[in-house]
Nucleic acid binder design. Structure first.
Lengths: 197, 197
DNA sequence: CCTTATATTGTCCTTCAGTCCAATATCCTT
DNA sequence: AAGGATATTGGACTGAAGGACAATATAAGG
């Protein structure tokens, strides 16, 4: 039986993870992981400064799937080169998570569909070495989660389903995010987030 | 200027390689390679017992694209994990080779479309050549102009002012663009356009 | 000359997005 | 305990977005 381990700050745990794998275990760092085998599966939320965790995880026997806040080609390249077996958005649906699990357990590689599209269309987004975005750190975990989902093209209703909250709450977080990021609507928010990656 | 180096036995040199890159250089082993930089590109034909060459090549500064005689998921996983930037059939068309070159030189990762499909579906099942491949080329000039403006974060009213047409006309072009690109709203259109850039 | 594609604009309608006015509960820090 | 930040939700409201019907004009091509 495959055991699932999720490594992430408690604030960003998607309810979908538990929906997909009710028996999954959580921890805030890969240092807290018990002894894992190749039959297990480690899900690692990628952090801006989480390279240490990434390389520690891929050194374990268990396959590692990287979860990102925003799918990005360069990041995908990094995690795959590091030895991860999967790379997808951290707000993926339980169905997708389950599918990723199947693929990885069968020695497959998984990339998010959007990233696939970028690859097959031969478009590699250039990375202008953006220095730092101070404003993005001002967002609370929930605001950031909503913003990430919106940046993935979700409607407020869909985001509400994803995060298991009402559409009204989504609007509240979004309005706060707009204010903090200094953007006027969701489209400009997408442009800002796209510039980050 | 990017230099292209092909590593393969002389017997299997595809004429397509030379068609794509007339100035490319050939050698039978990566040991014969001159000093390469990150601006160069190394094309390595995978051999049944050529793992040594693979790992030697990826240790160089230049990006490496693996050419296979038969596309295979496990092999793709191996070469990507080894650090290669691309994996495709060695009889790919010159156009594809050129495209791969572009992608890799822009820090991209390349996998063959069929392999992509396998990864997405998590099985070896093959799709019947998706009939409608949304392309920006299908857009008329005006539709493209409206789409570009929208991708810049403009509202319909602003786009109308920019293009000196009524807001109603903007909507007409946008609806047509949505249909052609297979997207449901302006936000997904932005994501598509951002992927093209 | 006629067909087709493109460009343009119209009205009506429904749904979505975003803001304004709130309120309640939890967690953490002082 | 008190205060502050965060998370959550409600109702009402305005404006934008997008589709469902249209129609007209013009240029290119057979």
């Amino acid at each position: 039986m495959t055991r699932h381990f999720f490594i992430s700050p408690a604030a960003v745990r998607s309810p979908r993870w538990q929906q997909a794998f009710p028996d999954a275990q959580w921890c805030c760092s890969c240092a807290e992981l018990p002894r894992v085998s190749s039959a297990d599966l480690v899900w690692l939320l990628l952090e801006p400064d989480g390279d240490r965790d990434l390389y520690t995880c891929v050194a374990l026997e268990a396959p590692v799937v990287a979860l990102t806040r925003q799918e990005n080609l360069a990041e995908a390249q990094k995690v795959l080169a590091a030895g991860a077996c999967g790379y997808l958005h951290y707000l993926a649906t339980p169905a997708v998570l389950e599918q990723v699990s199947q693929v990885v357990r069968h020695k497959g590689l998984w990339l998010g569909a959007d990233l696939m599209r970028q690859l097959v269309l031969g478009s590699a987004k250039r990375l202008p070495e953006s220095p730092s975005e101070p404003r993005l750190q001002d967002l609370t975990p929930r605001e950031r989660a909503v913003a990430d989902a919106v940046a993935a093209g979700k409607t407020n209703k869909e985001v509400a389903r994803d995060l298991c909250i009402t559409e009204r709450t989504v609007k509240a977080h979004l309005s706060a995010a707009f204010e903090k990021l200094g953007v006027r609507d969701r489209l400009h928010l997408v442009l800002v987030l796209a510039g980050q990656a």
